[in-house]
Amino acid sequence: MHFIITDAWLAKSRAVHLSGTKLVLALLTLALVLVFLSAGLYHWVLLKGARERWPVIGSVVRFVVQDEFEQRDRFMRENLDAMARKLGDMQARMLQLEALGERVGGLAGVKPEEIKVSSAGRGGAFVQGRPLTLEEVQATLADLEHLTGERTDLLTVMESRLIDQRLKKMMVPTQNPVNAPVGSRFGWRIDPFNGRQALHTGLDFQANVGMPIVAAAGGVVVTSEPHPEYGNMVEVDHGNGVVSRYAHASRLIVKKGDLVKRGQQIALVGTTGRSTGPHLHFEVLVQGVHQDPSKFLAGNGQVPVPAHDNVAQIAVGPDHRPH
């Protein structure tokens, strides 16, 4: 493309040649300049019209701004309504959790006054009210956070109590020490050696030689040695003053100081010591006082109240030895 530029004052002419590429670049440059000028003019006119409240432009700007505010408010309202529904669900779940915590707390032996509970029962007919504000939602969230902290404290205490109860039950001799029937029970009887009345301080399990003897509960072995009357004997301390004794064994498997768990093999049935035949003589002592082992074996994991009557406190003399 050729352009001829003529200067009348100087009486000269100048020819300008533009190729296709240069022409396209020139048109694009011109278009960009026009776009920037239009945008700047539009922005300046709108700002000036909005500030000085020109009749038409001011109305348009106010309409646009009002529409944006309405959309934003509608968006916030929808989100607040969704949050309010979620809060309602959370409150209902917290009430269910509180009721469950109270039931479990009763099983764990936790008294209601030990944990302060600030929430109260709620109910009644539903009456539609105004939507919640952001401040009200935030306040409800704060209340839920406080209630969650209280529930966490309560459940932590209950967990500790339940673990403690479980450990105590594991440390109470409630498991049969040998898989055999009971032949002679706790109490007064005729001594098989001298025919006189004597106190039998435990249970005799009629088992064959070599049958495994297991710990009736977990604890620490405090004695594992021969005894002139009990024969090969093992004593396990279960804590809280509870000790179980296993007598007349043919072989001792554990030694003093060993930690044993419930059901762990500790010895083998025999007939050592003051014994008329193969059996296991099993005793339970609480605070050093002989107790009826059947109360433990048939119990619910609780230590029976020590019997401090004349029968339980009679010393085992020369004619009152276990067999």
Rank of each mutant, 00 (worst) to 15 (best):
R130S: 13
R251P: 00
Y246S: 04
E159V: 01
F3I: 15
F193Q: 04
E229Y: 12
F186N: 02
G317A: 12
V284S: 03
L18P: 02
L47H: 08
L10P: 00
I266H: 03
R53L: 09
L41T: 14
V117M: 12
P318K: 13
D292Y: 05
L155F: 12
D292F: 03
G124I: 07
L141F: 05
V286W: 05
S184Q: 14
G218P: 08
A298E: 15
G88V: 05
T148R: 11
L167V: 13
M171V: 00
L27E: 09
L259A: 12
H227E: 08
G187P: 07
T276R: 02
A217R: 07
W54C: 02
R151L: 15
R189H: 12
F193N: 08
F126Q: 03
A84T: 13
Q302E: 15
P55C: 00
N194F: 10
D258Q: 06
D89E: 13
Q197Y: 09
E159M: 06
I314G: 00
L10W: 14
D309Y: 07
H308W: 12
K111C: 00
V242R: 11
M90K: 07
K255E: 09
M211R: 10
W9C: 01
G58W: 06
V221C: 05
K12R: 14
G288R: 07
Q264R: 05
R103D: 14
P293Y: 11
V117G: 02
D81M: 05
G219H: 10
V33Q: 04
G219T: 09
G106F: 05
V24E: 01
M1F: 04
G124L: 07
M171L: 15
Q96R: 13
S13Q: 14
L87F: 02
G106Y: 07
L32N: 08
H248T: 07
H238F: 13
R161I: 01
L27I: 02
L297E: 01
E229T: 14
T133E: 12
Q128A: 15
D153M: 09
F205R: 02
L87W: 00
V60C: 05
F282K: 00
V127R: 15
V269R: 05
N179W: 05
V311C: 00
G241A: 10
G124E: 06
E150R: 10
E68T: 09
F282R: 03
A298G: 07
N310A: 14
G105V: 03
L95R: 15
L27D: 04
A247C: 14
V110K: 02
E68F: 12
K86V: 09
H2D: 09
G49R: 03
G187Q: 09
V137S: 01
I253L: 14
M170K: 12
V214K: 08
H227I: 06
P112T: 04
W188P: 00
I190M: 11
V242K: 08
M83T: 10
M76D: 14
V234I: 14
L10G: 11
L34P: 00
G123S: 08
D89G: 01
V260G: 07
Q302Y: 06
M171I: 03
Q313I: 13
L18C: 07
G123P: 06
H281A: 06
R85S: 10
H323I: 09
R130F: 06
H238Y: 11
R196W: 08
S13F: 04
P131C: 07
H281L: 06
S119N: 01
G241I: 03
T140R: 14
S275Y: 04
K295N: 13
H290K: 08
Y230I: 01
V61L: 02
I4Y: 09
V316Y: 03
V33N: 06
G40H: 10
